[in-house]
Nucleic acid binder design. Structure first.
Length: 501
RNA sequence: GGCGCCGUAGCCAAGUGGUAAGGCAGAGGUCUGCAAAACCUCCAUCAGGGGUUCGAUCCCCCUCGGCGCCUCCA
């Protein structure tokens, strides 16, 4: 399969070639664990989750490393604010982060190293940089000299002399160059510290990712990922210090995801316009967040709609609600197929597949593969999936046109195609009945209707319908609709869904 | 000042040098006691201007508008 990715390093799509045949070594910059993850984090880790899933699907043996930055200025400050230790604070947010990722159906990477478990590697790396003359000592720490590396700026496309250094931050004129950055920060009183040849202290930002990626993946690994905002300075610095320390190539492909925007502006901590995964997952099923994020190509900006009341209070997330509707549609399609198969299995042997369906299923699988192989176009992939789902429902609507044996074969083929897509994209993987029950339950809560109330209303309406008292039946239905619940009379009984909560 | 991104139907959003996926909303239909769901049909010439080309939404230039990075940030 011809796979191409957009490589930030060369600003173009390139054929994907791995360091070792059949193997992919990938590293993604993980979160600094001092607060709950927001939708922007969700976007990055969902995108790279799909990347890892796709590469495995494509036959590669993947080693996926995603770190936790569990010690830095923000962790220390927040720990002081809430009166705990940095270690305890970090552990707490790692736990919460794991829960969030699980709800988003982001698979656990193969290795999830923490900075505080890798001080030896970090110190060794800093020592190599000092020994090779790329780092120097000031009274508060060890600094990397950007002028000592002539490749500096290659990733971000910047020249040292053209940057508006000092425009937003005061320049520390003790440094040889304003862009020199700390490799090792000597500890101030009451700060957590680890021993080093230069004195007790902690790693600067950037060095940990070099140390951990090199440890688990080695020089020249295949993919390094992260948010666009990390290109400069974080990734630029990683490259500089890694290349200078090892004398070898660092990472081959640099992939960066775009931002999540709220009202056209980047969602960020500093702007304060962020929403956590937890907040969003209170409103809709967490899988809907994933589906929503996958609807936009990973490199482009995602518009995250936030509906506010005239007073400025949060009303809802229209885009997520729409995504949840599509989520329910997808699971309903899966369930219809499952039920139809159950009704046929055992009574009939699968026969010949109808030609049209065979073509549709194979065409879908090829289109899905091609979309993802072309710079991970999961948005296009979802478009193909929508078409397949429509094909499936259409087939089920007209299933009687086919003999049972052909029907069974077709249903199985459709399920197979959908399951493959689910595995790669990480959506519609759950057991359909359970997923729909959860979506429904949470919708009822949102609407403020109890299950008992609903059951009672449905029962009363069924009685009225049996008595041919359609006026009464319609009244009950209208009342429920007023409360946000829509009733649907299906062959097997009355079903319901939440249209507004 | 440097580097870069975006502007596709009411909304969200793919995409290609040869007349534009998908979703939501909307209109009409099949089905239904009536509905809903599901399905079918319909619904855009791609911010504006110039250039290259047999032909551009897609390539180049300019203009307008929006945004990002150059501090921490996915």
């Amino acid at each position: 399969m011809d796979i191409r990715f957009y490589n930030t390093l060369h600003r173009s799509k390139e054929p994907f070639r791995t360091r070792d045949p059949g193997k992919v070594a990938m590293y993604v910059c993980g979160p600094t664990v001092y607060d709950d993850a927001h939708i922007g984090h969700a976007r990055a880790y969902v995108a790279f989750d799909v990347l890892a899933r796709f590469l495995r699907f494509a036959g590669f043996e993947v080693t996926y490393v995603r770190n936790y930055t569990d010690i830095d200025d923000k962790v220390i400050r927040r720990a002081q604010e809430v009166g705990t230790t940095p270690g305890e604070l970090a552990q707490r947010y790692i736990d919460r982060y794991r829960e969030d990722m699980a709800r988003l159906r982001v698979l656990e990477p193969d290795v999830t190293p923490r900075v505080t478990d890798h001080l030896d590697e970090i110190v060794a790396l800093v020592r190599a940089l000092v020994d090779r003359g790329h780092a120097y000592l000031l009274d508060d720490g060890v600094y990397f000299s950007v002028r000592s590396y002539n490749g500096y700026g290659r990733l971000s496309g910047r020249r040292l002399d053209e940057m508006m250094v000092g425009a937003r931050v005061e320049v520390d004129d003790r440094k040889r160059d304003p862009l020199d950055f700390a490799l090792w920060k000597l500890a101030k009183p009451d700060e957590p510290s680890w021993p080093s040849p230069w004195g007790a202290g902690r790693p600067g930002w950037h060095i940990e990712c070099s140390a951990m990626s090199l440890k688990y993946l080695g020089p020249g690994f295949d993919i390094h990922g992260g948010g666009m905002d990390l290109i400069f300075p974080h990734h630029e610095n990683e490259i500089a210090q890694s290349v200078c320390a090892t004398g070898q190539e660092f990472a081959r492909f640099w992939l960066h995801n775009g931002f999540v925007n709220v009202n056209k502006e980047k969602m960020s901590k500093s702007l304060g316009n962020f929403f956590t995964i937890r907040q969003a997952a209170e409103v809709v099923d967490a899988e809907a967040i994933r589906l929503f994020l996958l609807g936009t190509h990973y490199r482009g900006p995602v518009q995250f709609d936030v509906e506010l009341s005239p007073e400025g209070h949060l009303v809802g997330f229209p885009g997520l609600v729409e995504a949840e509707r599509r989520l329910a549609y997808g699971y309903e399609t899966v369930r219809r197929l499952a039920r139809a198969e159950a009704a046929l299995a055992g009574k009939h042997a699968p026969g010949a597949l109808p030609d049209a369906l065979a073509g549709a299923a194979a065409g879908f699988e090829e289109a899905l593969r091609a979309a993802l192989a072309d710079d991970l176009n999961h948005a296009e992939a979802l478009g193909h999936l929508a078409t397949l789902q429509r094909t499936a429902n259409d087939f089920l609507d007209r299933a009687k046109e086919h003999p049972p044996a052909a029907r069974l074969a077709a249903i199985r083929r459709l399920r197979e195609a959908m399951a493959g897509a689910a595995r790669v994209l990480g959506v519609f993987e759950r057991e359909a009945d359970e997923a729909l029950a959860e979506i429904g339950t949470r919708g009822l809560q949102r609407a403020g209707v109890t299950a008992a109330e609903l059951d009672d209303a449905i029962r009363r309406r069924a009685e009225a319908r049996r008595a041919k008292d359609f006026a009464a039946a319609d009244r009950i239905r209208a009342e429920l609709l007023e409360r946000g619940i829509e009733l649907m009379d299906a062959p097997g009984g009355t079903e319901w869904r939440v249209v507004r909560g």
